[in-house]
Computed example of a mutant assay.
Amino acid sequence: MLSVLKNLWFRDPKESPVYINDIAIRIRAGILLFVPIYMSFTLYDAVFVSHWVVDGNTAVDSGDMDWDYNIIYSVEAIKKSYDYTVQTWVLFYALFEMLAGMFVWSARLSPAILLATLLAKNTKPVWKPIVPKRFAWGIGATFISICLVFFNPDVFANWVNTLAGSTLLPTTVNYMSPWIPLTLVWICLGFMWMETVLGFCVGCKVYSLLVKLGVFKEECEACNNIDWDEIARKNQERLAAQK
């Protein structure tokens, strides 16, 4: 337990480059999987479900029929108003988690990292470099930021207009198509599912490709599973045999 609290999911917080336990990463991705699932239901309701609410008690038969012999009713209907306060806070927490995992000092503030490390402490660790993971989490943070703009268009528009000193974005309508966050949420859900279930990090593969293309100069180490404890044990056995 003390080791978990001291090192979290890092092999050694002071080493360079930094390595983290991929088992804990996958567990954390599973914990955070609830965020895109919750947001997908929210966006489904916002995009595909009718915004009109009809009270069946107010539907009155008008006595007329249309050309297809359907009965015409007169109704009293209201339009739903959406409050995305809860969704906004959930997205802010998810954004915090994406950013917190990028650095040793901020990782200590993450409840999901602590919980994932505790759940993985009895499993043999799989050490992987943190740099490709940072890139993957950066993609996730970008997706989340775009969704935050969709749910709070007036706030973002006011910020932009204030900085620009002019009205660049409207503050009374949502200028972002709902298909943008809906698509991003499903992509995020797929990425996190592959990380959790298959151990396949799409962001890491993209990072590796960009390194090969020369976009990033830092060498992208292949995710490895070097058993340092086993190497140390064999070295001790060899030294003992020599004596």
Rank of each mutant, 00 (worst) to 15 (best):
L5G: 09
L5V: 06
N7W: 13
L8A: 05
W9M: 06
F10C: 01
F10R: 05
E15K: 09
S16H: 13
Y19S: 11
I23V: 12
A24C: 03
A24S: 04
I27W: 15
R28I: 08
G30Y: 12
G30I: 02
L32H: 15
L32D: 14
V35I: 08
V35D: 02
Y44N: 03
A46N: 15
A46Q: 11
V47W: 12
S50L: 02
H51V: 05
W52Y: 14
V54F: 15
D55T: 10
N57Q: 14
D61K: 15
S62C: 04
W67Q: 14
Y69E: 14
N70S: 08
I71T: 14
A77N: 08
A77L: 07
S81V: 13
Y82A: 09
D83L: 12
T85Q: 07
T85S: 05
Q87H: 11
L91C: 12
M102H: 06
V104H: 10
S106Y: 01
A107M: 10
R108V: 01
P111D: 13
I113E: 01
L114F: 15
L115T: 05
A116Y: 12
T117L: 09
L119E: 07
T123L: 10
K124N: 08
K124M: 02
K124L: 04
W127D: 03
A136R: 00
I139V: 11
G140E: 06
A141R: 13
A141Y: 12
L148I: 07
F150D: 12
F151T: 13
N152A: 05
D154G: 11
F156I: 13
N158A: 10
G165R: 14
L168E: 04
T172C: 00
P178S: 02
I180P: 00
I180R: 02
I180E: 03
G190D: 12
F191L: 05
F191P: 04
M192D: 09
M194G: 04
G199H: 08
G199T: 06
V206S: 03
L210D: 02
V211H: 14
L213I: 02
V215S: 03
C220A: 04
C220I: 01
I226T: 15
E230S: 09
I231N: 07
A232S: 09
A232T: 01
N235Y: 14
Q236G: 12
Q236Y: 12
L239D: 12
A241L: 03
K243N: 14
K243C: 00
